[in-house]
């Protein structure tokens, strides 16, 4: 694995009077959220969270409303000051940064996209997109030119002179995305960027993000409360509940091996064949042949394997680098769909 871009260790955020005594007090940290609130008047929005975000991956944080996702993502650039723990970006301690350094971080290294867009209503689209560059002190001509490129990239050509009020929700969020992209940040942070949008537009925007990611390979931290969005976009998913990360893993790990009943309930209705890969479904061991009927890639999802198997009417081989890893047949595939597949075995 590549080096982590963000490395978060034991992060706490406690809102309320004298919140900083909570993380260090084992008696208080053991309390349930409701109990903590009634005892101390504090809300622990983020509790002892640790994770790494690797270069080039889409790291999704998901959880129900109030689970502390927004607070967590804001702590990363200290828009909300963390109470305890450490945050390291590229080996540099974020919590130790002084004002100037922090501003540098926000200006060049991490840019955020907001749920309700956060656009400046009195500026045109192009000036909103160029806003981050303006803050950095770039000249007008240069920032306009760079903003123009980004506007084109997110598909907003021809709307440069409009104001946010004259745009649809989806278009506004494209402006928000463009504004974040314009400063060419190392990491993009998204806080439920699409939850205010209609389902169809949401899907468009999700595809836009997938496209941007595959074209540029930018590291992304993506907050959502929508499981299908998380599964669609995430390379890895951290599932939050009441401020804690209850499970962290790839979509497949989460769907196939829920860490507890909470997660299990969460993923119950997921179309498993869309998430699980052939690698998990196959029966290990070669096919002892050279033809490799079917010849499926191990990272393909089960739904695709079903098509192949159904069409040919017989078991298909799973092939990686010309080597046969195993076979999938009707029985194995049905097992995945029904959720009765055998526990994961070493590959």
């Amino acid at each position: 694995m590549s080096t982590p871009v963000f490395s978060v260790e034991g992060l706490w955020k406690v809102f309320g009077p004298k919140g900083d005594r909570v993380p260090g007090d084992p008696e208080l940290t053991a309390l349930e959220p409701a109990e903590l609130r009634s005892r101390t008047g504090c809300t622990a929005a983020v509790r002892d969270v640790s994770f790494d975000v690797h270069k080039g991956e889409v790291f999704v944080v998901m959880g129900l409303s109030g689970s502390g996702k927004s607070t967590l993502v804001r702590c990363l650039t200290r828009l909300i000051e963390p109470t305890a723990g450490s945050i390291v970006i590229d080996g540099e301690d974020v919590r130790a940064m002084d004002k100037t350094r922090l501003r540098e971080l926000r200006r060049h290294r991490a840019a955020m996209v907001f749920q309700h867009f956060g656009l400046l209503p009195h500026r045109t689209v192009i000036d909103n997109v160029a806003y981050g560059l303006e803050i950095q002190g770039l000249g007008k001509a240069e920032r306009r030119a760079r903003a123009q490129e980004v506007v084109a990239k997110v598909g907003l050509e021809g709307m440069e002179q409009r104001r946010p009020a004259q745009l649809s929700g989806g278009q506004r969020q494209r402006v928000g995305l463009a504004r974040a992209l314009a400063v060419d940040p190392e990491v993009l942070l998204f806080d439920e960027p699409f939850s205010a949008l209609d389902p169809l537009i949401r899907r468009d925007m999700q595809e836009e993000v997938v496209r941007l990611h595959s074209e540029e390979g930018r590291t992304m931290v993506f907050i959502t409360h929508d499981l299908s969005e998380a599964l669609k976009l995430g390379d890895r998913i951290a599932l939050m509940r009441d401020g804690r990360v209850v499970q962290l893993g790839t979509p497949e790990e989460i769907v196939s091996h829920p860490a507890d009943d909470y997660v299990r309930e969460f993923v119950r209705d997921v179309a498993r064949e869309q998430v699980m890969t052939v690698r998990t479904a196959m029966r290990p061991g070669g096919c002892d042949g050279t033809e490799h009927p079917g010849a499926l890639d191990p990272d393909e999802v089960v739904a695709d394997a079903i098509k192949v198997v159904a069409r040919s009417g017989r078991a298909a081989c799973v092939v990686e680098d010309g080597r046969c890893l195993g076979v999938v047949d009707h029985e194995r595939l049905l097992g995945v769909v029904a959720g009765t597949e055998p526990k994961k075995e070493a590959v």
Binding site: L102, R106, M112, G118, P121, G132, G176, R179, V183
Partner: peptide
Amino acid sequence: EVLEAVESLG
């Protein structure tokens, strides 16, 4: 949120 966005851009 607008103010937060402005702040997040440094």
